[in-house]
Design a protein around this nucleic acid. Structure first.
Lengths: 144, 144
DNA sequence: TCTTAATTGGAGTAGTATATCCAATTATAA
DNA sequence: TTATAATTGGATATACTACTCCAATTAAGA
């Protein structure tokens, strides 16, 4: 449903956020170990997140990645998906038709539309902080 | 969200069903024209649907494709997705973790799970007939 | 200033999804 | 039985996603 790049991106950001209080700057190696993700590939995704200003990077010794200006409480899952995938998870017609709306719906439109709206609003509204502060969440599980 | 193969498969089946009363057997060419889909690629998908027994094929002059035993009223969207993709649309953890359930959830599990259950039940329960007989559906739009 | 630690960027590889082409096969009908 | 109409199946092409490797760059600290 989500690309692996996008999954890595979300997990990366959740990891950096979860560390942002006691240990704001984390290295690539720490991240890829925490996620069980391939370091070189994770690095590309980090570059992308830096260019989108979700995080900041610092080169050289004691370098690494930390949250950007926005911070954990202003980044939503929906935003991350849009940055990595280039569009929202629910963008477009489920059957791939270029014209599909209330006026000219595909045959599945009436079934899928409410689900789409619901999913999209959930993703666009939930922030990284909210996810991490959920009291139901006993430990933060980001490993494969 | 769905692969193009899967979109073609659903649109193909909707088309065959919509023709199954007055004109049960349709040729590849008719199908790909109705969908605006590449004929050779559509053919591969038809082969797949034949091997899964959702439709039957007949070679030679006057040949073509028609619904299989199950018929339009017993095939659900969920089934088609599983046949083409190899698993349900909502299978697996949204963050890609191999272990993710109520006992050991990923950080997004509590948000995503209800959506997943809802989407899956909708897809597994709606049949091709139900989609085509929806009174809200004025004309059957399957073209790109 | 030199060494070391880190990100950055470019090029390249592997596998999968999408798509095409053509010969082989099968069935109809003249 | 021969020509024609159709699906089938195999080989191939192309684009995209996932991933790797390595040299270049930058910063810290001895």
């Amino acid at each position: 449903m989500l690309s692996k790049s996008c999954q890595y991106a979300i997990r990366t950001l959740l990891f950096i956020c979860s560390r942002s209080e006691d240990h704001p700057r984390v290295r690539l190696q720490e991240i890829s170990e925490a996620l069980d993700s391939p370091p070189a590939f994770t690095s590309k995704i980090l570059q992308h997140l830096v260019s989108a200003k979700l995080i900041q990077s610092k080169k050289g010794a004691n370098g690494g990645f930390e949250m950007g200006e926005a911070g954990c409480s202003h980044i939503t899952l929906g935003q991350i998906v849009e940055i990595i995938e280039g569009h929202s998870l629910t963008a477009g017609c489920i059957l791939g038709l270029s014209e599909c709306d209330e006026k000219n719906p595909c045959p599945v439109h009436h079934i899928y539309f409410p689900i789409k709206v619901n999913l999209n609003s959930k993703l666009m509204n939930i922030t990284l902080s909210e996810i991490l502060n959920d009291p139901n969440l006993l430990n933060i599980n980001l490993k494969t």
